[in-house]
Write a protein that binds this DNA or RNA. Structure first.
Length: 556
RNA sequence: GUCCCAGUAGCUCAGCAGGAUAGAGCAACAGCCUUCUAAGCUGUGGGUCGCAGGUUCGAAUCCUGCCUGGGACGCCA
């Protein structure tokens, strides 16, 4: 299945055996053999630093150790052509030329499944992301969260985890009241009344649109009703409309959730009181100043947190504790939350809660997505809920394009802040690296089309050993890396590794394309091999882009 | 004051479970289209890896302290 990994495993095992045979270490003292792919091709196909690591154990000079290892290595069994000892004691392995020969067949046989693995062992992972309050449009920052979360889930799925995407709907808090008030104000304004927006109102365009719709559907019927009656209705109406907008926007952004979890359902099922009871029974709560407190300091938090306020209402934390309890009770091996940087301070108290409830805290983790800074006309735009001034996901999709936005947001580490230059994204969208990658895919598709038109066989047998040009070997090696890239990106939860990989592969393809001709009537056998190579690269690019949720076009 | 993230080329960022001369894109400069898509390729220039210590055969990577920028420290959500 995974040619490269198999080759590496065999080589590692042979090195292991050689070290023992040379009596440089024992089964107990031998370190893990680490193989790396040298950055410089002059250093071979694989390299290991084992000789340096053994220096202490064997009490010999690294280069001497390296000599002894190579003398004891079964080159034949490891498919090694040549060995060099270099630098301070690196052992460089040059593999027999055909070690990459099976790559193409492996890729073509696996098709869309190439790159996937079973590393995750079917472990059940749940990722909760976006979870924006249903009080307006999704904006720039949410888009980053959505792209990251979605690609992370794709990665988990590809790496053999069982993954579920969940959106937590905050439909029970104060903000729903504010939503109702905001819709009410906009509604009355639509009807020509001069009404101020509430202090904590939501000023975005989304609420205005909702109010317009209300007027269209119901006319001024609700202006006559009592404020209380109206508010009740507007809250529900606003909530439903907002959720519909959010779901639509996300769907168009190619993000679909398996589960939408309502905060209210926790109230309705008494799950909050149940969670509180467990905390109380554990002796983790106390009353002070007319409020109920949670001793999060017992688990390393800065200060204790209020669970029930003086006025008898829950704080935000309380239902959230019940929510996370609910998640773990659903039997996930891992629950991952994707949060904005402004929520990072919330992690210790959530961790505290889960510990107090008796869950292993390792099952819970949070990925923090750093802020997105918006630049327009060279100036940083301050985003604020109050003014509603922010670029929405919808605008981004319309003006920049879905592929470009998704790619852009997962091109960087989630730990780094991100500058988003709206003018650049709009005006120079052709400079976006996503097109570079897509172009590589389209280029291959054109070649394959040409091959058909010119009468070359595109499905026949081929001899992979004819692929000996430097650029061909580069491509084979790169293509062979995908399974490890996906496995590592999933394991480290770093989607941007895939973005980088796909870019590198595209670069290798473009370089090959400019150096070698694929369709050559004078050399039909090599042409067949190259066509097969192109098909493998195309598949690999498509699979990588698939993980990113970016289209792989056949023409550009 | 405490906590989190970042500080690497002119700009935006990779690299950080320690390893060989620190990489890419953009920008700059010089080349490459009668030949499968030039949204491409090839080459050149450009770096005290924030600063100072420490750990070791070896540190951009690990530890400590400091500096700078951003974020968080609510009986808001």
């Amino acid at each position: 299945m995974n040619v490269l990994a198999q080759t590496e495993e065999t080589l590692k095992a042979q090195i292991h055996t050689a070290v023992l045979a040379a009596e440089l270490a024992t089964e107990d003292t031998i370190p893990d053999i680490i193989l790396e792919t040298p950055k410089d091709k002059a250093h071979g196909d694989f390299a290991t630093n084992i000789a340096m690591q053994l220096a202490r154990i064997a009490k010999k000079a690294p280069r001497q150790i390296a000599d002894e290892i190579t003398a004891n290595l079964d080159k034949q069994a490891a498919s090694v052509e040549k060995i060099d000892i270099a630098g301070p004691g690196f052992i460089n392995f040059y593999m027999k030329q055909d070690f990459l020969g099976e790559v193409i067949e492996t890729v073509l046989d696996a098709g869309d499944a190439y790159g996937t693995s079973k590393d995750g062992n079917g472990e059940k992972v749940q990722v909760e992301f976006v979870s924006v309050n249903p009080t307006g449009d999704l904006h720039l920052g949410h888009a980053r969260n959505a792209a990251f979360g979605d690609v992370l889930c794709n990665l988990f799925a590809a790496a053999g985890y069982e993954v579920e995407r969940e959106y937590y709907i905050n439909d029970a808090g104060n903000q729903i009241n504010n939503l109702g008030l905001s819709v009410e104000a906009r509604y009355l304004q639509e009807l020509g009344q001069s009404v101020d927006m509430p202090e904590d109102g939501y000023h975005g365009q989304a609420i205005i649109d909702i109010a317009k719709n209300l007027v269209k559907e119901k006319g001024d019927a609700w202006a006559e009703k009592s404020h209380e009656e109206r508010l009740d209705y507007f809250k529900e109406y606003g909530l439903k409309a907002s959720l519909r907008n959010i779901e639509n926007d996300l769907k168009d952004f190619r993000v679909e959730f398996d589960s939408w979890f309502s905060e209210r359902s926790l109230f309705e099922n008494d799950q909050i009181d149940a969670a509180l009871q467990v905390l109380e029974d554990g002796g983790y709560t106390y009353e002070k100043d007319g409020a109920l407190w949670f001793k999060t300091t017992a688990f390393g938090d800065d200060k204790d947190r209020v669970l029930i306020k003086q006025d008898g209402a829950y704080t935000y934390l309380t239902p959230d504790i019940a929510y996370h309890k609910n998640k773990l009770d659903r039997g996930f091996d891992q629950i991952i939350n994707v949060w904005g940087a402004d929520h990072h301070g919330y992690i210790p108290r959530m961790g505290a809660a889960l510990q107090a409830l008796g869950y292993p805290v390792e099952k819970f983790s949070v990925k923090i997505i750093q802020m997105v800074n918006l630049f327009e006309a060279g100036e940083k735009v301050k985003m604020s809920k109050r003014t509603g001034k922010a670029v929405s996901l919808r605008e981004l999709m319309d003006e920049v394009g879905i592929d470009a936005v998704r790619y852009y947001f997962v091109a960087r580490s989630n730990d780094s802040q991100l500058d988003f230059d709206m003018d650049l994204a709009k005006s120079q969208s052709n400079d976006n690296p996503v097109y570079y990658v897509q172009y590589a895919h389209a280029r291959i598709c054109t070649m394959l089309e040409q091959a058909k038109n010119k009468g070359f066989a595109t499905d026949g047998d081929f001899d992979a050993s004819l692929l000996t040009a430097e650029k061909e070997l580069d491509l084979l090696k790169k293509v062979g890396e995908l399974p490890q890239v996906i496995a590592e990106a999933a394991d480290k939860q770093m989607p941007h590794k895939v973005t980088q990989y796909v870019f590198d592969l595209a670069s290798t393809l473009h370089s090959f394309y400019n150096a070698e001709k694929v369709l050559d009537g004078d050399n039909p056998e090599r042409t067949s091999a190259r066509i097969a190579l192109m098909k493998a690269v195309r598949q690999t690019l498509a699979n990588g882009l698939g993980i990113l949720g970016v289209n792989a076009p056949e023409k550009m």
